[in-house]
Design a protein around this nucleic acid. Sequence first.
DNA 1: TGCTCAAGTGTAATCGTTTACATAAACACT
DNA 2: AGTGTTTATGTAAACGATTACACTTGAGCA
Lengths: 341, 341
Amino acid sequence: MTLKTSTIQDVARAAGVSTATVSRTLSNPDIVSELTKFRVYEAVKLTGYRINRAARNLRTQRAHSVLVLLPDLANPFFSSILEGISRHLSSKGYSMLIASTKQVHGSGERLIDYLDDARADGMIILDGGLDADVVESLENNPKTKLILFACEWVEGKDFPSVRSENGNGTHAAVNHLYSLGHRKIAHVTGPKGNVLAHARKDAFIAEVGALKLELKSEWVIIGDFSLAAGCEAAKVWIALDDRPTAVFCASDQLALGFIAELSRHHFKVPYDVSVMGFDDIDFAEQFIPSLTSIRQDRLLLGETAASMLMERIESPDGTSQHHAAVVPVSLIIRESTAPPR
Amino acid sequence: MTLKTSTIQDVARAAGVSTATVSRTLSNPDIVSELTKFRVYEAVKLTGYRINRAARNLRTQRAHSVLVLLPDLANPFFSSILEGISRHLSSKGYSMLIASTKQVHGSGERLIDYLDDARADGMIILDGGLDADVVESLENNPKTKLILFACEWVEGKDFPSVRSENGNGTHAAVNHLYSLGHRKIAHVTGPKGNVLAHARKDAFIAEVGALKLELKSEWVIIGDFSLAAGCEAAKVWIALDDRPTAVFCASDQLALGFIAELSRHHFKVPYDVSVMGFDDIDFAEQFIPSLTSIRQDRLLLGETAASMLMERIESPDGTSQHHAAVVPVSLIIRESTAPPR
DNA sequence: TGCTCAAGTGTAATCGTTTACATAAACACT
DNA sequence: AGTGTTTATGTAAACGATTACACTTGAGCA
């Protein structure tokens, strides 16, 4: 075990060739003769050579890594997306850097620094709720082409993005409830200002309109995607004079909180009211009752995001690049929805 | 918006000083005169200079980043730990690289490469279930001092580590059930071969022995930390002739699956049986019934791990380093436990 | 005055790669 | 033989920072 790791010079010496040849053998073997290749490989084995990435990164002007930005690291919703991103990146020899927008902001760092200081070649942002000035700084940077939004996006801005079919999902949800016989359907929304919340709410209202269903304004309950907001929404529902027979929640967490709170007040799902969510998180299946939901393919979403970004990183002049991708969702029917009483 | 980012040379020129002075101003301002400092800062502003990390990393022989290895990226259990790690790292100007042991292994890469090729200065491993040959390669590397296990660890090996008080937690759990009046207590374990599962099981058996409680061998049910295993364990419990009145599960997911399955068979928790978990994940509070559990402070665990590792990275010769840390746990009493009928 | 010392700055080597350019050998063709 | 082309390799200049060392001042002091 040598303490000093060996360099390309050591390999060159051991193989009796120049460093250029070693480098070529390792990164572009086709242009090197068989005999030389053999010698170099042997020398690599002998010396235990590992390429020094810092040196390569400096010389190639590439960090060989991508930054993923989450609104909040502690939110389990993102873990599968990360898995998808990571899979694609590591298959291309790239590493995945992670940070939370909150934290970066709090520490006085600027997001764009990651690109400007050559720490990352591109970034995937999973947070549509960035401050306007931050978004502007991202837009005006020369490397703005290397920024991609996944899952969420920024309304009115033209960043490349990958998202789930929020409209189609909402369509499927409302129609599922409709076809069960529900005619009075409520909606619990995500947080005000969140693009997903708005997209789903708008789609909900459009869909209910298309089916010519009654929709009282108090049947659209403002929430924030969390369990706690689901509990609050349940209290609101309970207090209604004219209660909808079905509730479509903008997230599974909302739906689970909703059901939990109802249960504390001795309402039974789906007997007293049908409830469904959006996302199909792991717990949706195990909850009692198990939750009808719209499944987002978070793994695919992550993989798509990574592959779109890699395409941009590797094609220098942005020719024929995909600008937006939409990942399909599917309706998963479980126990929490049933025909109205 | 210049396309080419400016270098330290540009700043030096703009400030009318040498690159050495610019570098000193930025990294060691105390030794530079006030006037020069002012000039350099102005020049930095003027040029929009951002340090190039690749160049610095090469010159300083530091990656200024740490690798965190998870067994499985899609497991939400780890997200708070990551948050804790990330907080500490970014406060020190370090970045967080993430990979999953599965994936690294699958791609034919070796874990130790991250250290050997200067991609990371150290690593935090959250997976005690590495293959023996992988562990050996980590042990025999000259940089082995820069590897730290968090949460889980490898039995019989002497890597630095941070973990929760698994013994104390188990003690608190069993005594909570005992003090409610339970005398027949079952345990659903984590997966065979997992260090946490073993630690908790051993502590459970010891504790039950200390209280001189009866313990039939079929009251220790082998699980694997998952919701699904919890369901299976419930079926086993139902089939017992002599059913324990309380069940201590080695994870919250197990406990929730256990309760869900019982409910499908019309058993009521805590009326028919008390159930508790370990971890205190977010859902524990919202589940119906809400779950009594042992809370692990995952944020603190992450922060502690990061700070121990940073200490090792920054002290070159390993003087007076902490080798192991234990993070306290606490008993959170909720609805899923009650006196036996 | 002459000497020492400290403070502040500049010069240039260095980190370990990649790659443009030069060179040399081998081959094909007239 | 002379020429052009291809293939394989070497030489050396980058990439953009940090830092050991040398140098220039001016102050302090006998």
